[in-house]
Computed example of a mutant assay.
Amino acid sequence: MKKAIFLDRDGVINEVLTKRVKFVNKPKDLYLLPRVGEAIKLLNDAGFLVFVVTNQGGIGLGYMTEEALQKVHHKMEKELSKAGASIQEVAYCPHKPEAGCECRKPNSKMLFDLAKRHGLDLGSSYMVGDREVDIMAGKGAGVKTIIVGKEKTELADYRFPSLYEAAVFITKRSE
């Protein structure tokens, strides 16, 4: 079975709620965070399949369409490819935040579905997020969890300032 890294998108891969961008509803709103391409390339080179798992309630709320989201993800993948980094698949929940669906984080359905579809070993995989709901989704799926950024939570197994430092840690642990 294969090992995987599940990444939240907003706040882990790209800017959100910054002076430059509030929400990422169009490709022009997508700005990668520093060293993200390098981080994902490190994970790719260490044999991890990298997936994005993201709540995109803006679709259910009518702020964007699924077609617009696909364009955002296409730009993200194109920008990452400049660093030689690749994403295996992007999974997203398009439902409203209060819809009560199984796929929206903190639920773990997106991770379980990806694991089934790609033959992933959840026990040797990680979830990296910037909010407690990401960590809860990872815990529910039985993966190791890493929080990046400034949110305070005691649930995560590890904490790092950014995806790059988390990737260095993960790759050293997997050697």
Rank of each mutant, 00 (worst) to 15 (best):
M1S: 09
K3H: 07
D8N: 11
R9T: 02
V12Y: 08
I13Y: 09
N14A: 04
E15T: 04
E15W: 09
V21R: 07
K22W: 13
V24G: 02
N25V: 11
P27R: 00
P27S: 02
K28W: 04
Y31K: 11
L32N: 07
L33K: 06
K41R: 15
K41A: 04
L43Q: 10
V50D: 14
F51C: 09
V52L: 05
N55G: 05
Q56S: 06
G57K: 05
G57P: 06
G58Y: 00
G60S: 03
L61S: 06
G62H: 03
G62M: 02
K71E: 13
V72I: 09
H74M: 08
K75D: 04
M76G: 05
M76L: 15
E77V: 05
E79M: 09
L80K: 07
Q88R: 10
Y92I: 00
A99S: 15
A99R: 08
A99K: 12
G100S: 09
G100V: 00
C101Q: 05
L111D: 12
L120V: 12
D121G: 03
L122M: 06
G123K: 14
Y126K: 06
Y126F: 15
G129C: 12
E132L: 15
A137Y: 09
G138L: 10
G138R: 14
K139R: 15
V143L: 14
V148Q: 02
K150P: 08
E151S: 14
E151I: 13
K152V: 11
E154L: 14
A167C: 14
F169Y: 13
T171K: 15
R173W: 02
S174I: 07
